[in-house]
């Protein structure tokens, strides 16, 4: 059983990745391209929304440390990516989005430390994924990317906290978790079974 699991994980890691470098919008400078960057990279948005909703499902006092951990690790990841240190982390981001989506769906209160761990891993993996970009100023691109990711994260967490008070709103968040897990599962299966042509 363990060997089979190991085999599946190894297969996932060896799967062909979709273009990790997203062609910047022509005519815009690197900073503005960075601002738009997360919107053309759906795995990043998917896991970011999942993390934001998961944090919003927990008591407010439990979400401040993971928020700080996420922002710090994102800064570290983007900083490393600026020096071209990193790799394509799309598979891991999708795996993470699937896991977080499932946790949202179950509406489980996960241990405090694991929230911090999810936040650190998400921030770091997101940042490192931008190492492959070919632009004039990586620093400007990554700064713009970081700004957008920060605002999206804050907005999702804030919206989740605001929306998660009534019963039907909590159900809405759980349905979103189900959607996120479903999307991640499908795309992971594509990575696993369909060779890039």
């Amino acid at each position: 059983m363990r060997k089979k699991l190991f085999g599946i994980v190894a297969l996932l890691l060896l799967t062909p990745q979709w273009a990790s470098a997203h062609v910047p919008v022509p005519g815009l400078n690197d900073f503005y391209n960075g601002l738009l960057h997360p919107f053309v990279s759906l795995p990043h948005l998917l896991i970011l929304i999942a993390l934001g909703i998961l944090l919003s499902q927990h008591p407010k006092k439990d979400s401040s440390m993971p928020t700080a951990a996420f922002l710090s690790s994102l800064a570290v990841g983007l900083g490393l990516a600026t020096f071209s240190i990193g790799f394509s982390t799309e598979t891991f981001l999708l795996l993470g989005a699937g896991l977080l989506g499932f946790l949202i769906l179950l509406n489980w209160t996960v241990p405090y430390w694991s929230l911090g761990l999810f936040a650190v891993l998400t921030g770091l993996l997101m940042g490192l994924d931008f190492a492959g970009e070919t632009v004039i100023s990586k620093a400007a691109l990554n700064l713009g990317t970081g700004v957008t990711l920060y605002f999206v994260f804050v907005c999702v967490t804030g919206l989740g906290e605001g929306l998660g008070k009534k019963k039907w709103q909590q159900i809405g968040l759980r349905i979103m978790g189900s959607w996120i897990a479903a999307i991640a599962l499908l795309v992971l299966s594509l990575l696993l079974f369909v060779k890039k042509t």
Binding site: A181, L185, L186, S189
Partner: peptide, 9 residues
């Protein structure tokens, strides 16, 4: 959606 995703896989 979750079971549908399983069918999709």
């Amino acid at each position: 959606p979750l079971v549908m995703a399983f069918g999709g896989v």
